[in-house]
Design a binder for these strands. Structure first.
Length: 610
DNA sequence: TTTAGGG
DNA sequence: CCCTAAA
């Protein structure tokens, strides 16, 4: 039984238009950056949210006697699924079809949770596969997968102990912040809000909200908000399980756009500066940072040192290339053997619904089916091939996901249609270790403009040979630069702001190396003709005369081309590369060059003789 | 801004 | 193609 829900997490990918140098407005950049930040969300948040929704659905479900895995639960019924699919939310079942195995996905994102009345959901995000939702650790904690409390968490036993609740309560004092909330709302604060636990990266409830009221003002009635979604799950063992989730999650899930916490979790948003209070949320940030920043700090630093990457500037080559990697999400709920014992009493949560579970415990297993990786800045050399691109993309995404998922990269589009070139990421079947890069993908991917960092490095850019690949990039080793990819999580936009993105960014104006556009024969023809007429010292005139409409050809380009033409004409045909230029043209090049050189020589030493 | 040349 | 000193 699988609950399938297409999640609306999408990165509102942006693409800075190919604005002429120096004409990009500051305002435009600010907009870009803003969007990046607002769309930030990471996988574990997503999973946690899904878990929240599952609980909500469960709560609202009339079929209370079903276990989460129950097939008769409307929420998980095929009809429901179908309905969502018909709703245009996409059928990822179809998408998933063809995948040999998604077991790893399920495993990777398994979430174990256990609730108790008035508990809170926490997610741990040390690793995508270690997401844990804890509801009221004072009672017990169920771990999914590995022990997520790897640090400072030794107190928590993997298997719940009868006395654990007491154990926790004895050790952990209730922070003042939630004492207040308790007073205000009459809700018993969870002991898990302790410094002790906060230090271990416990994340706050994965609340998703379009308004900042919840996240930003935990002490002003926010608990009410939290409690609004309380759902009590009464197990057959009479253990009450309560998980607090935000009802809005569901609504938001329905929408395609999630505005996520990070933006709202600025320190300044907390009116209470008490260090005992902040850690809960603060740790979330830290956790996030560990997940993201730490991983990429090296590469990012490297790139920035070379001044090739900006958090808000052209991530692309300005030619329309963009990467929209996708991962897919699938959710499922199932029972589990991870027994949780202890717990007692009945739920006292008003209005809370109760559910009886056949098993002692249950897990909500979530598997990511589809979500868009926030953003990927990938640096590739001019000589990049589809294959190297794929490798790069895969590497980046894998890094983002912390290796919790195996990602397969599927190329969409053709290398000769870079405008539509995309990569789709899918869970990589464990049993199909097929090479990720096929040979036919190692064709040169020329039109892609590599960032400046690729410049002045390594070998000369290979010539693009439209006819045959005597220059096939076949054995082309992937240049080091191609690995210098930088996923730029939106959350790090702030941190990245350290770099020169105030005012005018160098990169946005001069950084992007232009796309290489070899001169065609006809262009050479036009150039030769113009030079024959105007000479070799009036490139501006040549430009106006023969390439006025060719925006991408500057007079410098023409001058350079003439230079190479002269060189080409002088070398043996065997040494020439690229699209062959008719010998006739080359002859004219030589003669014209000789003529105008002579004219120039004549004019210089003795102008009056002309 | 253009030229002229080196990288 | 890029970068730039010079003009």
């Amino acid at each position: 039984m699988v609950l399938q829900k297409r999640l609306g997490y999408e990165f509102n990918g942006y693409q800075v238009p190919n604005v002429p140098r120096g004409s990009r407005s500051t305002r435009g950049k600010r907009c870009v950056r803003k969007r990046v930040v607002e769309n930030d969300m990471c996988a574990f948040e997503l999973l946690a949210s899904v878990a929240g929704e599952l609980l909500l659905e469960k709560e609202s479900s009339p079929a209370q006697s079903d276990t989460i895995t129950g097939g008769s639960n409307p929420m998980f019924s095929k009809d429901k699924v179908k309905e969502e699919q018909d709703d245009g939310l996409n059928s990822y079942e179809d998408e998933l079809r063809g995948q040999k195995s998604c077991d790893h996905v399920s495993r990777a994102s398994k979430i174990g949770f256990q609730g108790q009345e008035h508990g809170c959901i926490f997610t741990e995000c040390l690793h995508p596969s270690s997401i844990v939702i804890i509801s009221d650790p004072s009672e017990k904690v169920t771990f999914a997968e590995e022990s997520v409390f790897s640090r400072n968490k030794s107190e928590f036993a993997r298997s719940p102990r009868p006395d654990q609740g007491k154990f926790m309560e004895d050790r952990i004092p209730t922070p003042p912040q939630f004492e207040r909330q308790k007073n205000a709302d009459g809700i018993v604060p969870s002991p898990c809000f302790s410094e002790d636990l906060m230090e271990v990266d416990i994340k706050p409830p994965p609340l998703v909200s379009s308004s900042s009221s919840i996240e930003t003002s935990p002490k002003s009635g926010s608990h009410m908000e939290y409690a609004a979604g309380i759902a009590d799950y009464e197990k057959s063992s009479s253990c009450n399980q309560t998980v607090i989730v935000d009802r809005r999650i569901r609504k938001l899930l329905a929408s395609k756009f999630w505005k996520v916490g990070p933006t709202l979790l600025k320190d300044g948003d907390f009116s209470d500066k008490d260090e005992d209070v902040k850690p809960l949320f603060y740790s979330r940030k830290m956790c996030y940072k560990r997940q993201r920043t730490q991983k990429f700090s090296f590469k990012r630093k490297k790139l920035f040192q070379r001044g090739s990457i900006s958090s808000c500037d052209l991530p692309y080559n300005g030619e329309g290339l963009s990467c929209s990697p996708e991962i897919h999400i699938k959710g499922e709920a199932s029972s589990s053997e991870t027994g949780v014992h202890g717990g007692n009493g009945t739920s006292s949560s008003p209005g809370a619904q109760k559910f009886a579970f056949d098993s002692d415990d249950y897990h909500v297993k979530l598997s990511i089916k589809s979500f868009k990786v926030p953003e990927l800045f990938i640096e590739i050399p001019e000589t990049a091939t589809i294959g190297s691109l794929k490798r790069t993309v895969m590497e980046a995404v894998t890094a983002i996901l912390g290796g919790g998922l195996r990602i397969g990269v599927h190329l969409q589009g053709r290398s000769d249609e870079l405008e539509s070139l995309r990569f789709t990421l899918e869970p990589n079947s464990l049993q199909s270790p097929k090479p990720l890069i096929s040979n036919n993908e190692d064709a040169p991917l020329l039109p892609i403009s590599p960032p400046p960092a690729a410049r002045r490095r390594g070998s000369q850019p290979g010539q693009l040979s439209s006819q045959g690949g005597h220059h096939s990039a076949g054995g082309e080793a992937e240049p080091p630069d191609s690995k210098a990819l930088v996923p730029v999580p939106a959350a790090d936009a702030e941190a990245l702001a350290v770099f020169p993105l105030h005012g005018k960014s160098r990169r946005s104006e001069t950084g992007q190396r232009r796309v290489r556009r070899p001169f065609s024969v006809s262009e050479v023809e036009a150039l030769v003709h113009a030079v024959e007429k105007l000479g070799t010292g009036r490139w501006r005139d040549v430009k106006i005369c023969a390439f006025d409409s060719a925006k991408h050809r500057t007079y410098v380009d023409l001058k350079d081309k003439w230079k190479t033409l002269v060189h080409t004409a002088r070398i043996s045909p065997q040494r020439r590369r690229g699209e062959p230029v008719p010998q006739e043209l080359l002859d004219r090049v030589l003669s014209a060059h000789a003529y105008w050189s002579q004219q120039q020589a004549k004019a210089e030493p003795c102008p009056r003789l002309t």
